[in-house]
Design a protein around this nucleic acid. Sequence first.
DNA 1: AAACAGGCCTAAA
DNA 2: TTTAGGCCTGTT
Length: 278
Amino acid sequence: MRLIEHTGEVELIGAGDFDPSLIFECGQCFRWNAGEDGAYTGVALGRAARVRREGGSIFISGTAADFEDVWRGYFDLELDYESVRNQLSVDTFMKKACAYGAGIRIMRQDKWEALCSFIISQCNNIPRIKKIIESLCSLYGDRVVFEGGDYCTFPAAERIAALSEGDLAPIRCGYRAEYILGAANAVASGALDLEALSRAAQGEARSALKALRGVGDKVADCVLLYGLHMLDSFPLDVWMKRAVAANYGSGFDPAVFAPYAGIAQQYMFHYTRSTAGQ
DNA sequence: AAACAGGCCTAAA
DNA sequence: TTTAGGCCTGTT
């Protein structure tokens, strides 16, 4: 990959699989939105940015230093996703899913943000999930100005731990408020060390997450994959259960996709949802 | 109007 | 170990 620094943004040439619309809309994140020009703007890791594809290049706002400090890791640019796709194309279904999802990458999101976001996601639809998260950020995040617009960071666990259920009432997250506060307290107090968990064994990290009220198998697996970047974690939501049942039956074991079962899940998820009803 | 949406918890077999 | 019902809220 070649990097060219322009004024206000960097250009990536030969970044490999990198389709902003797939990355931001395949269900792994909630805070990147497409503008009229097709460019995505979002706030991540405390800063706002814009990402777009033009020709064969990817443009990310900021300096080369920003890119090295934040975005190279955030977009997981060290992993060759084309090679992963080839590795995962083990049968007819996965060949189709991988081809369909070429351009997807699994981001390294903020760990606390992933935990909190996927707690909110339970039994909810994407528009409402995004609405609740934006409301949480605008109430309790920090303001950042970017290209003349006003944005908000995702509030730190410490900030939310200091709140009450009443403080969360305006975000309209319903019964999840109690779960959010519990998780925030666990993280803020140090009882749950997400940084340490990301270096622990997957099973151990999963158990620690599931010890939180409001975190079951599905949310825990999403946090492992999207927050702790454990690429072998295989979240099973209702769509994935249908997809697995339809294509593999009951004896399926995601270990056939090791060590990238989580990426396999992402291709399957996106392919299944996008082609639903066709 | 009733069901459903990217689950989780509890109680009961 | 598996299953049913309830849960906040918004949308269809």
